[in-house]
Design a protein around this nucleic acid. Structure first.
Lengths: 405, 405
DNA sequence: ACATATTTGTCCTGATTGCAAATTAATTAG
DNA sequence: CTAATTAATTTGCAATCAGGACAAATATGT
């Protein structure tokens, strides 16, 4: 267990202030005080320290004093964008997307490598990643030495702490020490995270959950991922394992049950002898879903049935998750959403029907068709949040909100 | 979010020390230091304060110096059993069980009321509870004024913070403000908690998970409950809602799916026209399961099939949970376990088959046929853990009737 | 133009906290 | 009876936060 010492206290408050500044974008000291309930003097001390470390910068100019301008104008504080640069990468079977962001998480450069990386030999794969990172960093007008850390978002089950990929459709092997492997090549600190956690973080920082500290995210792609934001932090299972939805068994008995992957993953929906040549081509480049959408629109029954079946199963699975975590919001992302209504309508219908009564009115489903760069940006956000010195991502005690003693 | 000040720091460390003493039963200051990693001086200060508040007592006698006795003997510290008394109650459809414990959680008195409280009018129900508490307190040789708080463990979905029972088979109504209702009658601070969380706490403090800070517990009774211990604290969903397993939908499509309750709750297993008179009698008094076990042993196929079906479904559900939380241990409790192998073997088989690969070797299932008093004791433990001043996760503002908070 | 009001941010004091080192206390070994 | 040994407390130091006084920067009023 973590012992509470002054150092921890400082870390907590420092992180808190930094995070408040990040969320606001530009904010004055007094307002930080209002939001964090810290005393003015504490704010002053902490911001001074942050200014000293060049993590934030004052912005005298933007003195948008809202009418009631009387006394001394407040000076706005902003994250110092150039305090650090990180690289985030989304790794998917059909391609890699790299993003270089500044300290705020704003994108400086972006690179898409539409290459299948499915089950490549590890060396070859690492070559691709290394190359992509280097190139993207160059595109941003930087050198590798300017990059503080690299974050890789991988589908499957990832052990964040050790940077290991327990199992993933990308690798043939289990237990790939991805983070240290890449770190050795690049000479830059590297972390690995599940792609679902990355996009969860992205939604929290940049997307549909900026206002929301508790939500569940389900990603529907080749793999079925799950991210849970609980009390403003990523919920990780025991031993830092990322969560996964694909292994969920649907059914009452072993005989007649299937893993959700076998029903609702891209592969499951698209496969079958029915697939014609053009579809196979589309699949190879990750555009299978839009292709199928067209087929369905043109009256293809088989795919329509598969999509509907997948949607229905997903709706049930999501309702079960909602029953467990009771989140006010559920966010749906992933390439399979390109299937459109044929997937989503059955999903929402079965979700509504399966959701437990007391939650029915308070849980909303949000669908977000974000591009791959948001996932990469989420990976970057994971790296940044660690740079911010988050004290409680490191097993600190979860602090309760509210009641002052 | 809570702001970190010295007060919080102290609260954390104080709780930490108190909890260490509780776990050990009897422990010296040096050993506390070893376990908590706190400095000797801090320990000294905190224990002095605890001694001052009479929460702990020194035990000079028990100087079991393990052979290598040279220097000054360590003085052992123990919880002061009489620092507080709490009442824990397990509320089940077939009866109430009350327990009075001291500050350590040791049972001082126990009272079982084998009365059906199923859907009684709220007033009548409250009469029973009030009566049971008063009587049990008397049995312990105490008065109600000696009792610091009362904790009620209720099946169903409970909002711990507000003490509300969202939905339960016990009450016809939704949103019963149970805690404040009972608090008003007894004039004693009262909290409500789901029965699953209570038994989870009990397993952590007294039972099969004393060594284990991460586990999942599934309770199989009339209702299907779920408790998750994460990092040594009860995991509560957003907004402090207790978790529930009964609403989990098993199946790939809405058409052919059922709630787990309808497959694996007691009612589901026992019901059917097949039930004869004696079974109905047994059910009424909560002994249905042992009765059925006998029937199955005598060759009753219908019940055997029902039990097996329930076990299979439960195994799948539990495997899914294990996939989400990745706990090293899963504990099974509840009256339905009295069914014996007819339920448990199919459960373990389907669990083993449904469990995702990477967890297969690291997740163990433990079955515990604890009596009802352990549940009540768990409720008491929940109340105690708040008395200990748990700085995190608490938020359970203990509800008082008239008295000032 | 000048004085006053108002708001913002910083400096100083006081109360806590924690840790490290020295000090006192209570034993046993010889 | 003295020395050695281990346990617990006391003392000194550094850090935190909070509250109040003070300086700075601007708006308002005459």
């Amino acid at each position: 267990m973590k012992t509470a010492d002054p150092e921890l206290m400082r870390a907590i408050n420092r992180f808190h202030v930094l995070d408040t500044i990040r969320r606001a974008g530009s904010i004055s000291r007094v307002e930080i005080g209002e939001r964090t309930q810290l005393s003015a003097t504490t704010i002053s001390a902490i911001t001074a320290s942050l200014l000293d470390d060049a993590l934030i910068t004052p912005r005298h100019e933007g003195d948008l004093r809202d009418g009631a301008g009387r006394g001394r104008p407040r000076v706005m504080l902003t994250l110092n964008a150039s305090a650090a640069r990180v690289v985030g990468a989304k790794i998917a079977p059909t391609g890699l997307v790299f993003v270089v962001t500044d300290f705020q998480g704003d994108i400086l450069a972006e690179l898409t490598l539409p290459v299948r990386v499915d089950r490549l030999p590890l060396e070859v794969f690492a070559d691709l990643v290394e190359d992509g990172v280097r190139r993207c960093v160059l595109d941003a007008g930087l050198g590798l030495s300017d990059v503080t850390s690299v974050a890789l978002a991988v589908p499957g089950i990832v052990e964040h702490g050790s940077g290991r990929v327990r199992s993933s459709s990308i690798f043939r092997d289990r237990d790939v020490k991805l983070a240290s492997f890449v770190a050795d090549r690049l000479g830059v600190a590297t972390i690995a995270e599940s792609d679902a956690n990355a996009i969860t973080m992205a939604q929290h920082w940049f997307g549909r959950a900026r206002d929301c500290d508790d939500f569940v995210l389900v990603s529907v792609e080749d793999a079925l991922g799950l991210g849970v934001m609980h009390n403003g932090q990523l919920f990780r299972g025991a031993r830092e394992l990322s969560l996964d939805l694909g292994h969920m068994m649907m059914g009452v008995s072993t005989a007649q049950s299937e893993q959700l992957t076998d029903i609702a993953s891209e592969k499951a929906i698209l496969s079958g002898e029915h697939a014609d040549l053009r579809l196979r081509e589309a699949m190879r480049v990750g555009r299978g879903m839009s292709h199928v959408r067209r087929l369905v629109a043109e009256g293809d029954d088989v795919f329509a049935a598969a999509a509907s079946r997948a949607g229905e199963a997903l709706g049930i699975a999501i309702a079960n998750l909602a029953g467990l975590f009771a989140p006010p919001r559920v966010i749906l992302v992933g390439s399979s959403l390109a299937l459109g209504r044929g997937l989503i309508e059955p999903l929402q219908a079965s979700f509504a029907r399966a959701l437990a009564e007391p939650l029915r009115e308070v849980t909303e489903i949000v669908i977000d068709e974000a591009g791959d760069e948001l996932w990469a940006r989420g990976a970057a956000a994971v790296a940044l949040s660690e740079l911010y010195g988050s004290p409680w991502s490191t097993t600190g005690p979860v602090l309760r909100s509210g009641t002052k003693a």
